[in-house]
């Protein structure tokens, strides 16, 4: 982390900061009505209020729990299915065809059905997140396994690697970049599904907090909800990128010769 790095980071912050400053000035001069768009200062006050009375944290925790459950489930099921269908002809025939059909269904359209089936409990929300995240994980890992360089598989044969060794040393590490890409997509979709699930039908969660605010014309709370969603998306993306940097060192150092 050199001085140049910080300078670069600083430059990247410049335009958002200017934007917020301009927004504040415009609000203060009465150019923007507070009912349509509250000023940044007012938003921070609302945010502070929501933090102090604990409602933000409670709702945030509920939302996080839903995403964690749904996402973990999607990761476990998606990876398992992709391994089964990627590593055996048998699995491919049984698993891949139905999943390729199912994935064309827009998962969001399932929301009403899920609510009918599971009521207004946690199940439909977790399930929606799960379904949304499942396909990017499955599809990318499956593709990664199928697209392993056949030349490397040939090398494994000439080196006398067993099937298990070939999977461990060649196929899985080779498919890892695709899996991580899938995870990144999956996070994006997971947050989207959460928003929908919580706004259609929920009694807690960030989405619910925003819907409630709508009834009371609290634009400021809705905006705080938006900001929180945005931050969550940003953080999860950063997490995956960090994992990538960690797990795919061999790629990164290839880019810049050491």
């Amino acid at each position: 982390m050199t001085a140049r790095f910080y300078l670069r980071e600083g430059r990247r912050l410049l335009s958002p900061v200017l934007l917020v400053a301009g927004w504040q000035v415009a609000s203060a001069c009465g150019l923007i009505s507070a009912r349509i768009l509250p000023s940044p200062v007012q938003l921070s006050r609302t945010l502070w209020g929501l933090i102090k009375d604990g409602s933000l944290l409670t709702n945030l925790l509920v939302s996080l729990e839903r995403v964690s459950f749904g996402f973990s489930l999607a990761l476990i099921v998606g990876v398992t299915l992709a391994l089964l269908s990627g590593l055996s002809r048998w699995g491919e025939d049984i698993i891949d065809a139905p999943l390729q059909i199912l994935r064309t269904l827009p998962a969001l359209a399932l929301a009403p059905l899920f609510i009918l089936w599971f009521g207004i409990g946690e199940e439909p929300k977790i399930l929606l997140v799960f379904l949304g995240a499942l396909f990017p994980i499955y599809l990318n890992l499956h593709k990664g396994i199928r697209n392993i360089d056949p030349k490397l598989l040939e090398v494994a044969r000439t080196l006398g690697l067993s099937r298990a060794q070939t999977i461990r040393d060649v196929i899985l590490p080779g498919a890892l970049p695709d899996l991580l890409l899938g995870v990144r997509y999956a996070f994006g979709i997971a947050w989207l599904m959460l928003v929908v699930a919580e706004q259609v039908n929920a009694e807690s969660g960030i989405g619910h907090m925003m819907m409630d605010a709508e009834d009371f014309l609290r634009t400021d709370i809705i905006l705080v909800g938006l900001i929180v969603y945005g931050l969550l998306g940003l953080i999860s993306d950063r997490l995956v990128r960090t994992a990538e940097r960690w797990l795919l060192v061999w790629q990164r150092q290839g880019g810049t010769r050491v």
Partner: peptide, 14 residues
């Protein structure tokens, strides 16, 4: 027996 090919065919992740 051992074989060497035109491309080194090393595993980039090892």
């Amino acid at each position: 027996v051992s074989v060497v090919f035109q491309e080194s065919r090393l595993l980039p992740w090892r």
